[in-house]
Design a protein around this nucleic acid. Sequence first.
DNA 1: GATGGGCGTTGACCTTGATCAACGCCCGAT
DNA 2: ATCGGGCGTTGATCAAGGTCAACGCCCATC
Lengths: 209, 209
Amino acid sequence: MQAMLVDDVSHYEEGQHIFREGDPFDAIAAVRAGTVKTYILDREGREQVLGFFLPGEVVGLNAIHPQIYPCNAVALDTVVLCRFSFQRMSSLASTMPGLQSRLFRLLSEDIGKAALLSGDFSADERMAAFIVSLSRRYARRGFSGTRFHLPMARTDIANYLRLAPETVSRVLRRLRTDGVLDIDRRELRILDLPRLEQMAEAILRDHAH
Amino acid sequence: MQAMLVDDVSHYEEGQHIFREGDPFDAIAAVRAGTVKTYILDREGREQVLGFFLPGEVVGLNAIHPQIYPCNAVALDTVVLCRFSFQRMSSLASTMPGLQSRLFRLLSEDIGKAALLSGDFSADERMAAFIVSLSRRYARRGFSGTRFHLPMARTDIANYLRLAPETVSRVLRRLRTDGVLDIDRRELRILDLPRLEQMAEAILRDHAH
DNA sequence: GATGGGCGTTGACCTTGATCAACGCCCGAT
DNA sequence: ATCGGGCGTTGATCAAGGTCAACGCCCATC
């Protein structure tokens, strides 16, 4: 069924844009490999990171209405994307309840995801939630959930979590000192996942499966 | 069409619960009159406000998946609700593209709404955005956009905006001192809407009509 | 009328994370 | 090999808003 709907498989080099704010929305994009970052630029041209998308995840769902991408998406490393025509997809959804229900589900999950940062959480909690979320998403796709490479810069993590980069460094150092994780630049190893999950639970309570 | 789908019109007194966390999801609830607050309770039983729903707005969309309400909804004053069976609605959506498209739109708008608080915004910006958002939503339904009664307590506003109640009082006092608005307990009058909108624009950029 | 509870406001003090100002490391270009 | 730029880390200081501790107002109940 999925092969039936794939319009396009495309490759992007690190730093290439997949879509830009204002582009017309016509397809749902699923990441097959690599990592995608979405961001907006504010009035002064400063970047605000909205999210990171790992293999198996769908980018740009919030463009369904009003059919225009409200943000930019850029490849953080080499990315492979599968595109599904939304027009064709929603027509088929009319006759295939399973597909319609799948779309409702994806959209409903995105509501949950957007709430990740809307709480009043400490820097520790945010950082823990970010790491646990990555861990779970990598594990869900068959990758290691305790040892992974961070494809995004500290400044991007900080921006996404609405923290200063200095604070990200400090929290990571504290977590390393406490024996919760080990980190060397972008190589991360989780040493005490239950501890991290405990720190993250207030944030991730809606996403425990 | 809408009359065709209405299962139920019900009334709630102030303080009555409309649904509770864990209740099975079976219908979409549209507010016809009054105001609804949604909240969750954390592990220690503390309340976290998730949103306020005005007349014409739909409560509980994020329950579509996984068919269980993830939060509580309570009437802040006398509330009239219309319920639409989601089962029937989604079957009909399969054959009526207009309805399906309307559902996608409602869900997509909810993603946008959840992002309201996910940024790194000052107390002033949050308060301004809250007031402008209320103003626009009241105006959209034909009520006055510059003079309205706040149906929720300061503690609820503070909780929703992730601020302390003292801070809400202080910001409102500052805005009154600056001549931006006048407020006496729950009666609010906006005196300088452009100024408020300017303060709110970083937050509301995604929600401009 | 008196009392109690809920709500909102106010001032003083405290805490968390941001800002500012460096420094070190790594990698690519020359 | 050297240099420059980007990235990450570290320490000192500052600021926004939270916490704590009141007080005043309003309304319902007795």
